[in-house]
């Protein structure tokens, strides 16, 4: 008798908590619904239309089939995935290593190091694009170093060749966003008790072991977060392509978002087509994020 009563109470309490839970997320959910989902629905409808401004007409799947015949778009798709596969892992691992270095209690000047490493993402894109271009210019700093070291005889036009331009974009991305991701890891590391590390030290664990056996598993939720965000960010990559290389040489570095931007604002506007390409990005990110969540989002 008393058991069922308490069960009932527990039930109603759970129900109450359940409702409170919904109340907590209502404001955010509503705002996303109005500010993101509603425009997305409209963009989706637009993706089945062709024409400009108010001369739009429905044209079935033509925008969707069109993009697979569009050689520049296909190239941009390839470029973007190359960036994703190479840059994201390098960046995240580097950020993790730096964060765990900076989490060391005995390190001096931590504040300075942290601020320094964060700086690139706070530095305005305008200046960093100019700097990268001049660093890697034919008579730029990198070339003069390589010539002095005897590796090169004459200056190499890094941004003028497809492969090296891609590599520079990847370097630029790593340089700019490592500090950003480090912030999440640093804050995530605060949730790991320092005593865990001390215990590990007493047990004679090497720094390597501590890193892989303690830091990485405990930071898993944060690593998942940064992985999903970086995947999303890279597939929508735009700034670097536009400002560093302007997509060149010969579209060798152009990204999908950059091409979509060109189709919307630089060229004769094709918003229907731009929306269709955007939804391809959407599908790709969604699939990747789904896989990442499946792999990484298990509650212990």
């Amino acid at each position: 008798m008393s058991q069922t009563k308490s069960q009932k109470r527990k039930m109603s309490l759970e129900k109450k908590h359940n409702l409170t839970g919904w109340a907590f997320l209502t404001p955010a959910t509503l705002m996303i619904a109005v500010m993101s989902f509603w425009p997305m629905v409209q963009a989706f409808i637009l993706s089945f239309q062709t024409g400009t401004a108010n001369k739009l007409k429905f044209d079935g799947f033509s925008n969707y089939t069109r993009m697979f015949k569009d050689s520049v778009f296909m190239q941009s798709l390839g470029n973007t995935f190359l960036y994703l596969i190479i840059q994201v892992p390098i960046m995240l691992i580097l950020a993790l290593i730096l964060a765990s270095m900076l989490n060391n209690k005995n390190l001096r000047c931590k504040g300075l190091f942290r601020t320094a490493i964060f700086l690139p993402c706070a530095t305005s894109l305008v200046s960093y694009a100019i700097i990268f271009r001049s660093l890697f210019g034919v008579d730029g700093f990198i070339n003069s170093v390589l010539i002095k070291l005897g590796i090169l005889h004459t200056g190499y036009n890094f941004l003028g060749h497809a492969t090296s331009a891609k590599i520079i974009i990847i370097i630029a991305l790593v340089w700019r966003w490592t500090g950003y991701n480090m912030v999440f890891y640093l804050s995530g590391l605060q949730n790991i008790e320092y005593s865990v590390y001390e215990a590990a030290k007493i047990d004679g664990a090497s720094p390597m072991q501590t890193f892989f056996k303690i830091t990485v598993p405990l930071l898993k939720p944060t690593i998942l977060l940064t992985a999903v965000m970086s995947t999303n960010g890279t597939l929508q990559l735009f700034d670097e392509s536009l400002n560093l290389t302007r997509g060149g040489p010969s579209n060798a570095t152009i990204t999908m978002s950059h091409y979509i931007y060109n189709q919307s604002f630089k060229y004769v506007p094709k918003f229907g087509y731009a929306s269709a390409m955007s939804f391809l990005i959407f599908i790709l990110v969604a699939i990747l994020a789904f896989i990442q969540m499946k792999v990484g989002d298990k509650r212990d």
Partner: peptide, 26 residues
């Protein structure tokens, strides 16, 4: 709620250029 969360995540996956026009109209 986990389901809602996954759906919300979808909101960031469309490039802003695409949703900008409807937002502007709004």
């Amino acid at each position: 709620k986990d389901m809602v969360m996954s759906i919300l995540l979808l909101a960031m996956m469309v490039p802003f250029v695409a949703t900008m026009i409807p937002l502007f109209r709004m």
